Amino acid sequence: MAETPASVADAGPSVTAGLLVVTAVPVEAEAVRAGLTDPSVTVAPVGVGPAAAGAATARLLALAEAAGRPYQAVISAGVAGGFTGRVAVGATVLGDRSIAADLGAESPEGFLPVDDLGMPPEVLGGGSDLPADPALLAGLRARLPRATVGPVLTVSTVTGTAASTAALTARHPTAVAEAMEGYGVAVAAAQAGLPFAELRTISNPIGPRDRSAWRMREALTALTAAAAALG
């Protein structure tokens, strides 16, 4: 595995060259860039959902390696929904794990994660639950001491009913946020042998879909503030 950028791991003043920060959409990328002080950090919007984000991230990593300027770490950043009672709207979240929350199968006993379906490990791509790089996460925690740390779920369908919220909360009792890209980006980073972490700011509570309750401006402002930890 490539080394974690030293200045992140040591909570130093900036990030060394070689950090790739990916977001889903351009407005998130703009918010991240607005908070950076190190121009060597690359920020790129890679699309919505785990498939688009994973494929685009893998392509960026491969192109950089082929050009002789490989990235040294990858961070998935953007806004997310937060679990009520665990994290507040406008807060910053650091994912200690990125979990593919809807990758698996239904059964009479309930949802079965893909890891429990009896497939050989080599076809699971590391499984549905990928941990953040410990050194990279430690550096971010040191620079963002007020951030809430916990699992961030990756879903292909955003949770929008009371029933689905209750089921997801029961399956993941320590999860703090839900987004749509982190796991895909984590898989791309793992395949490239690179450290990975996930940084999110909360725009809305997870639950019955209510756009009037979303605070996107506040979440993007918080994302800009948090990006200062990246360099």
Rank of each mutant, 00 (worst) to 15 (best):
M1E: 03
A2S: 14
A2F: 13
E3I: 00
E3F: 02
T4E: 02
D10S: 12
A11I: 00
P13D: 06
S14D: 04
L19C: 01
L19K: 00
V25G: 01
V25K: 07
E28F: 11
E30S: 12
A31I: 12
A34M: 04
A34P: 00
L36S: 04
T37W: 01
P39M: 07
P39A: 15
S40D: 14
V41I: 11
V43M: 06
G49F: 04
G49I: 07
P50K: 09
P50W: 03
A51R: 14
A52I: 08
A52N: 15
G54V: 12
G54P: 10
R59H: 08
L61K: 13
A62N: 07
A64R: 09
A64L: 06
A64T: 03
A66F: 06
A67F: 09
G68W: 08
P70L: 11
Y71A: 05
Y71T: 02
A73V: 09
I75W: 00
S76Q: 07
A77V: 11
V79H: 06
A80H: 01
G82K: 00
R86N: 05
R86T: 05
G90F: 03
T92V: 15
V93W: 03
D96E: 13
S98K: 03
I99D: 12
A100I: 01
A101K: 08
G104D: 11
E109N: 14
L112Y: 04
V114W: 06
L117F: 06
L117A: 09
M119A: 15
P120N: 07
P121A: 15
L124R: 09
G125C: 08
G126W: 02
L130W: 06
A132H: 07
P134G: 04
A135P: 03
L137V: 12
L140E: 03
R146F: 12
R146K: 13
P151L: 06
V152T: 10
T154Y: 07
V155S: 05
S156P: 01
G160T: 11
G160E: 10
T161F: 09
A163E: 15
A166P: 11
A167T: 09
T169I: 09
H172C: 05
A175I: 05
V176R: 05
A177P: 12
E178F: 11
E178Q: 15
M180C: 14
G182D: 15
G182C: 14
A189S: 10
A189M: 10
A189P: 05
Q191R: 15
A192V: 01
G193Y: 08
G193H: 04
L194S: 01
R200M: 09
T201L: 13
N204G: 11
P205F: 13
G207M: 02
P208V: 09
D210K: 02
A213D: 11
A213Q: 15
R215N: 14
R217Y: 07
E218Y: 06
A219F: 05
G231Q: 04
